[in-house]
Design a protein around this nucleic acid. Structure first.
Lengths: 148, 148
DNA sequence: ATTGTAATTGAGAATCAGTTGCAATTATAA
DNA sequence: TTATAATTGCAACTGATTCTCAATTACAAT
C-alpha cells in the first residue's frame, strides 16, 4: 500500500521533470517517520541507524524539494541550523518553545490565522507562508523555577 | 551627552560582573547607528569603514550580551545567518518578508499581540518573546510578476 | 593613584552546517 | 532497449561562528 505522500512527491517531481529515485523515496520515508521536528543531521543519523545508505548531500538536496512540494515546513531556528517537520496530514501550526526544557508545543488558532491574513491585506502583501515562534516557559518549568 | 542605551548596557554588564570596555561601547554605538537590520558582518564592515578597530570575535561575543540585555532583538533568518536589529526606543514588531526583492516590512498590531497573550494564557505558557515572520510578495513584486 | 585579579581583547586556528564539482550510476520517456 | 538528462556519493570547499591563548585592561579595593 503506497503512502499518500509518496504519490504527492512523485507527482511534484514529475511535474518538474525530476526523478523519483530510491534515495528520495527513502528520505521521504525517513522524514515521515519522524515524530516531531528534525534537522538534516538527525535524519541522516536515523537513516544510517536503520541501515539505509544515503549521503548527506542527497539529504541536503532533497529537503528543499520537499519544502517546495509542501510536504514539509521549515521550523524557525531555536539554535543555529535548519529544522523541519512534515505537515502532511496535519495542518499548519505555530510553536510555543520552552526556553528551559526545550519542549515544543504546537499551537493553532483559526483566529490568529485570520488576523494575519487581514493584516497582510491591509499592507497589500501577498502572504504565502508564515512562522510564529513564541518563546518562554512551559507550565512545568515555570512552576518549578519559582519564577512566577 | 551620554546615550540612554549606554547607561542600560553599562548597568546590565555591571549587574553581571562584566566590564564596559571601549570595544563594547563601540559595538553598541555601531549597532544603534544602524537603520534597520544588520548581521555581524555588516556591522564589522561598517565599523572598519569608519576606522573603528574591533575584532570579529568581539562582535560575536558582544551581540549575545546586547540580546540578553534587551537592547537588540534577533530577527528571524531569511537566509542562513543571524540577523539583529536594535529595539531601544522603537517598539517590538514583526516582519513581512518579500521572497522576491528581500524587502522587510515591519508590522505591528496591538490586536495580534493581545491574541497571542490570550493563546499563551490558555496553554498556561509563560510567554517571554516571540517572532512572527510572514513570507510572500510585496505589492511591487506581486504586481510586476503577473502572479496575481 | 596603585594594584591585583578576573574579564577581555585580537588573531588565527578550529569547527560546523551546508554546498559544490565531478565521474559513475540510474530513472524514465521514446 | 536505449539515449540522455538527472542523480548519486564522495570529498573538497565555503562561509559563519566559536574557540584558544597570550597579552591587555577595567575596576574594586586598597
Amino acid at each position: 500500500m503506497k503512502r499518500m505522500e509518496d504519490r504527492v512527491f512523485r507527482e511534484f517531481l514529475q511535474k518538474k521533470g525530476l526523478k523519483f529515485t530510491k534515495e528520495r523515496a527513502a528520505i521521504l520515508k525517513g522524514v515521515f517517520s519522524a515524530r516531531g521536528h528534525f534537522d538534516p543531521d538527525d535524519l541522516l543519523i536515523k537513516m544510517r541507524g536503520k541501515g539505509i545508505r544515503v549521503s548527506k548531500a542527497s539529504i541536503y538536496r532533497t529537503l528543499p524539494l520537499l519544502l517546495e512540494s509542501g510536504l514539509i515546513e521549515q521550523v524557525l531556528k531555536v539554535d543555529k541550523h535548519a529544522h523541519y517537520e512534515h505537515t502532511f496530514g496535519r495542518g499548519h501550526h505555530d510553536h510555543l518553545i520552552c526556553l528551559k526544557c526545550g519542549k515544543v508545543i504546537p499551537l493553532y488558532s483559526r483566529k490568529l490565522e485570520k488576523l494575519q491574513e487581514n493584516l497582510c491585506r491591509k499592507e497589500k502583501f501577498k502572504c504565502l507562508t508564515h512562522t510564529l515562534e513564541i518563546r518562554g516557559y512551559c507550565l512545568r518549568c515555570n512552576s518549578k523555577s519559582g519564577l512566577s
